[in-house]
């Protein structure tokens, strides 16, 4: 028996190409990544150039899905999605950077830090719907905010745009993606050696100058990661636009969902391919924006310290 197992092992080893364990695991991960991520993406791209009837595929390449997409109002939808996601990424960054700086270098009370960490972590364990739906009760016409505004006498009628509006969608994104922006920035700032800040001070730099010339360049890896972790998921978010926009502020992801629900797989694939193109364009913009500071490799090189 043992001999047979040994023989089987030998056969297997002979069969497989000779490589070191490291190269094997690298190849293995690359292979899994290729099968799990790249192949489905290629499939989506290919599918977007086909036609289907029910679940039957017609293997003639065509751009009809893209033509129909734009006929059925895809242009404004894509524009709205990019505009809202980009606006919110900038706003998130403006709020998150000072907060992360305070958390990493300003907050000295360990208990306060612990509570803040917990508050930043808890949202990851909650369903996105649970996180957002609470706003519906707070912002509705009979909700807390409107009741307070009416009671104080600031308004005589309930403010309707607090919910089911673009304002509401922006507000929903702010809370939803704040931790995703804060965490990477916090980590990169926390890694900055305090001696650098002391040295800057000793050399006579003002706080602002230290911020711009020391902290900001060294926290760029976190900023880049935060931008990616916020902007990209916003493009695919189905919860916030639906719950906060109430169907009045639709974004791309909802349409992908309804198209699949109606067995319109090729148009869903075409829309997904467009999301992919937006992400690629975003990477190009990011790459171009980082060129003045030595490109993306140089940005992450600042982590070697």
């Amino acid at each position: 028996m043992a001999l047979a197992e040994h023989a089987a092992g030998m056969n297997l080893r002979q069969f497989l190409p000779r490589m070191s364990a490291g190269i094997w695991s690298l190849s293995g991960f690359t292979f899994l990544w290729f099968i799990g991520i790249v192949v489905p993406l290629i499939g989506i791209l290919l599918f977007s150039f086909l036609q289907t009837k029910g679940i039957k595929v017609q293997w003639d390449l065509t751009i009809k899905a893209y033509e129909k997409l734009f006929f059925y109002g895809g242009g404004p939808l894509i524009g709205r999605t990019i505009r809202i996601a980009a606006t919110m990424t900038v706003i998130e960054l403006l709020f998150a950077f000072p907060f992360a700086l305070w958390l990493a270098k300003g907050a000295k009370n360990q208990n306060l830090k612990l509570i803040t960490f917990t508050l930043l972590t808890v949202p990851f364990f909650l369903s996105p719907v649970a996180r957002v739906i609470v706003w519906r009760s707070v912002m509705s016409v009979q909700g807390l905010v409107n009741t307070a505004l009416l009671d104080i006498g600031i308004v005589s009628e309930p403010v309707e745009w607090l919910i089911f509006s673009e304002f509401a969608v922006h507000l929903g994104y702010l809370g939803q993606y704040f931790p995703a922006m804060v965490w990477p920035i916090f980590l990169s700032i926390a890694l900055i050696d305090d001696e650098y800040l002391e040295a800057s001070k000793d050399l006579g730099a003002s706080r602002f100058r230290t911020l711009v010339h020391v902290i900001l360049p060294l926290s760029l890896p976190g900023i880049v990661a935060g931008i990616i972790f916020s902007f990209v998921p916003m493009l695919g978010d189905t919860v916030v636009p639906q719950q906060m926009g109430g169907g009045n502020v639709m974004m791309i992801s909802h349409n992908v969902y309804t198209m699949i629900g109606a067995a319109n797989f090729v148009m869903a694939a075409a829309l997904s391919a467009i999301i992919l193109a937006i992400m690629l364009a975003f990477q190009v913009v990011l790459w171009a924006a980082l060129r003045p500071v030595g490109g993306i490799n140089n940005v992450f090189a600042s982590l070697h310290r």
Partner: peptide, 19 residues
């Protein structure tokens, strides 16, 4: 449930929703 032109009817509905 599944009309003959389901995909087109849903796409027309999406056009209304996206407007």
């Amino acid at each position: 449930g599944a009309p003959d032109h389901l995909a087109e009817i849903q796409a027309a509905t999406d056009r209304f929703v996206n407007a």
